[in-house]
Structure formats: structure tokens, C-alpha cells
Amino acid sequence: MFYIHCPYCGERREEEEFHPNGQAHLVRPADPDSVSDEEWGDYLFFRDNPRGIHHEMWVHRLGCRKFFNITRNTTTYEILETYPMGEQPTITAETAKVRHEQGVQTADGGWQTVGARPENSTLNEETPS
């Protein structure tokens, strides 16, 4: 079970209030008529599918109903950060290792912890219940 920090509500809520919507930061080609079949197919169907750091879009479906992004590790399931639409992640596959050592996130007793940004790090102190 994830506890997810909604960057709009500013609250950590249970996974069931949210819904995942796939890879984040996909940009629709500005002029679809001018792209090749190859580019259009890539845009429609080809996604990142890493073992490791993934940036993905979620919606706070049963809350504020706004979309936002999560940086999450697809093997440990740790949520490293959540951030509003329009912003870029501060943690990427390249930097993750460093951030990991800095202890930005915790995982406790099989529970997945929130992804608050480092500046909100108190939110990461999860007590398993």
C-alpha cells in the first residue's frame, strides 16, 4: 500500500484515492500532420519501462482530482518525490543513487512511504501501522 503525498492537497493519503496514468512528461507532437509514422507510433505506443527510477503521472481521483507526477523506483516501489504538473523531477535515474544515500526516503516494514520533497522531509517519517 502506498501513502502518496498530493502536492496540491499537501497531504499524504492512501493509494486508493489515486489512480496511475502512465509515463509522465510525454509531449504530444506540436504538428501531428508533419510527423512521420515512426514518430507518431513512438509517441502513441512506446513507453519507458525501466527496472528502477520511473517518472509517472497520477491523478488524485477521489481527492482534488488534479494530475501530478511521481518519481518512483519500480523494483523497491519507493516513492522518491511527488511534484506538480509542469515541474521537472529533481531525482532522476542518474542522480537517484546520490539522493538515496542522502536518505531522502525511507521504507519501513513493507510499507511504502510518501514522496515528499527533501525540503518537506518530515513527511517521510512514516510509522507503520
Partner: peptide, 13 residues
Amino acid sequence: DGYLGYGQRGSFP
């Protein structure tokens, strides 16, 4: 489970 994952367990909901 709706999100990507490589952990062979799955979520409680």
C-alpha cells in the same frame, strides 16, 4: 496493478 512494477507481489487494494 495499474502502475509499473517489477516486484512479484502486488498491492493490497
